[in-house]
Design a binder for these strands. Sequence first.
DNA 1: GACCAGATTGTCT
DNA 2: GACAATCTGGTCA
Length: 197
Amino acid sequence: MVHGREFYARDAARVAVDLLGSILTHRTNDGLTQGIIVETEAYLGQGDPSSHAFHGPTPRNAIMFGPAGYAYVYFTYGIHHCFNVITGSIGTAEAVLIRALEPCSGTRLMKLRRRRADTRHLCSGPAKLVQAMGITKADNGLDLASSPSLFIETGKQPLQIVATTRIGITKAVELPLRFYIKDNPYVSKLLKSKYNT
DNA sequence: GACCAGATTGTCT
DNA sequence: GACAATCTGGTCA
């Protein structure tokens, strides 16, 4: 079942947890890719110093201030893109960053896009999965609740979930807003980068 | 595996 | 002008 607006219109942390085990699908002209979401991070809008929304609306983060269920794709470090889903109610600017996937369908296509042969390294990081799935800045603002080409649906249910601190940020680093599936080999980093190289 | 440096440009102060 | 929700490839062990 594809997640609808009501699924996304809840607290970012709750959505982040519930997205674990769900399946992300992207259809492009090149073909179909699918992955199980195994790692997420919650960003709490204007109250969160490490959120893009912290300083208020700008042209870049405008989509965050709209309704839940929309995709927020941004560019960073001069080379990378990251993929988020907007959550909460209109104006709260909450979002969930998808950090890692377990490749499920279209792994051949993922390997071509990533130019990597090792399945383990196809989607084990926010910028990696964006590249493997063929997500681009053009997907910014797409409605995941109604798009036929980009959506998330219910997957496995009973899971062991680990909550820990977020990665790659310099503010509010202590908040336990990163979630991943215990013992899953596709998670980007454990407490000490174990599966990363 | 651990640690480090370089890439490279959009975005905002 | 500074910095960024990162990744890769190098060195050393």
